[in-house]
């Protein structure tokens, strides 16, 4: 990390204007069984999320595999139709939009995908991949479009002469840059980064994350940064939300959350991050959770975490904890806090 960027001074907790406000978002996938294909239940991938994303900030979203992080990101961009709840983008509810009005909202919010190999059409040149959003929304034509594509490639640190190449001719990091250029093409305000660095090796991860930070500073972007890499989240995010089994368990700004985690799940998660000091690491006590994440089609009664929680009390098995603000700007869902 030779070119470490200065901490960006974006997050003022007092700034009230949320760019995206999510209210009680539900995303259930029905399960059908039997000859008559009757619905016998639902996988509750996202089960009642309420949070804000402020303009210009990076909200990190962490949690283990299968907890609904990606589903949340995709539901926010309306790649899925939410089962319930509201998604307010600059005060406008997009959860119920459809067809042309939704299409007109698309340029405002974009996505960067996890697997840069799979998210680029192997049969299209880089130029046409990046030009696709411009063509679809008819914002640039002819020579202006070509110039814009070259400018975008330049902005993500790729040689603009690569327009005629195909995705397989690039390395993983370069492909991710192509994905970023495509997401930037329509000058969005909000970008969901769905584990953009998980498929890259460590040296490239830093490049991509710093590129994202750079672009944020220059273009005033707002990110929802989905990841399971806690140290990377610490590096890029202003605030962090922790998810478990379709629910948010804790949300706080990054310094507070990493310094004093309140929810037992957050504590366990943070204790899994190794400390870069062998002496501390050797004596550090880790919280090791037992068992597996329960089946989201059949979650436990009461607190979702009660089956694995080292601090669970009787109340946790009966009553579901409410999502409440314990300190200003700090939300936790736990009976013991």
């Amino acid at each position: 990390m030779s070119v470490e960027l200065a901490e960006h001074p974006i997050n003022q907790p007092a700034s009230p204007a949320p760019l995206v406000r999510v209210e009680d978002l539900l995303m259930h996938f029905p399960v059908y069984k039997g000859i008559l294909r009757r619905q016998i239940g639902a996988v509750k991938a996202v089960d009642g999320l309420t949070f804000d994303i402020r303009k210009g900030e990076t909200l990190g979203l962490v949690g283990e595999s299968g907890c609904g992080k990606s589903t949340t990101g995709r539901a926010l961009l309306r790649l899925y139709r939410a089962t319930g709840g509201r998604i307010l983008f600059e005060g406008k509810d997009i959860a119920a939009l459809d067809g042309e009005p939704l299409r007109r909202m698309r340029p405002r919010m974009q996505m960067i995908f996890q697997d840069p190999q799979a998210s680029l059409n192997p049969r299209m040149t880089v130029g046409s991949i990046i030009a696709e959003p411009l063509i679809e929304h008819g914002v640039y034509k002819g020579e202006a479009r070509k110039a814009k594509v070259r400018e975008l490639l330049d902005a993500v640190g790729l040689n603009p002469d690569y327009v005629n190449r195909y995705p397989h001719e690039f390395s993983g990091g370069q492909r991710q840059r192509i994905g970023i250029a495509r997401a930037l093409a329509l000058d969005p305000d909000f970008i969901v980064c769905d584990e953009p660095i998980a498929a890259l090796d460590v040296s490239i991860q830093a490049q991509v994350v710093n590129l994202l930070k750079d672009l944020q500073k220059k273009l005033g972007l707002t990110y929802l940064f989905i990841s399971h890499d806690l140290s990377m989240v610490k590096h890029i995010a202003d605030r962090v939300a922790v998810m478990y089994l379709g629910k948010m368990v804790e949300l706080a700004d990054v310094a507070t959350l990493f310094a004093v985690p309140k929810h037992p799940y957050t504590k366990a998660l943070l204790s899994a991050v190794p400390v870069p000091d062998p002496q501390v690491e050797a004596t550090r006590k880790r919280i090791i959770l037992k068992g597996d994440i329960p089946d989201p089609a059949n979650p436990p009664v009461g607190c979702k975490f009660c089956t694995r929680c080292p601090e669970a009390i009787e109340r946790c098995f009966v009553e579901e904890p409410v999502w409440r603000e314990v300190d200003p700007g700090r939300h936790v869902a736990c009976h013991r806090v």
Partner: peptide, 11 residues
């Protein structure tokens, strides 16, 4: 994913 990407673009 590239089909999903196209959807998110609004194709």
């Amino acid at each position: 994913e590239f089909v999903l990407a196209a959807k998110s673009i609004g194709t």
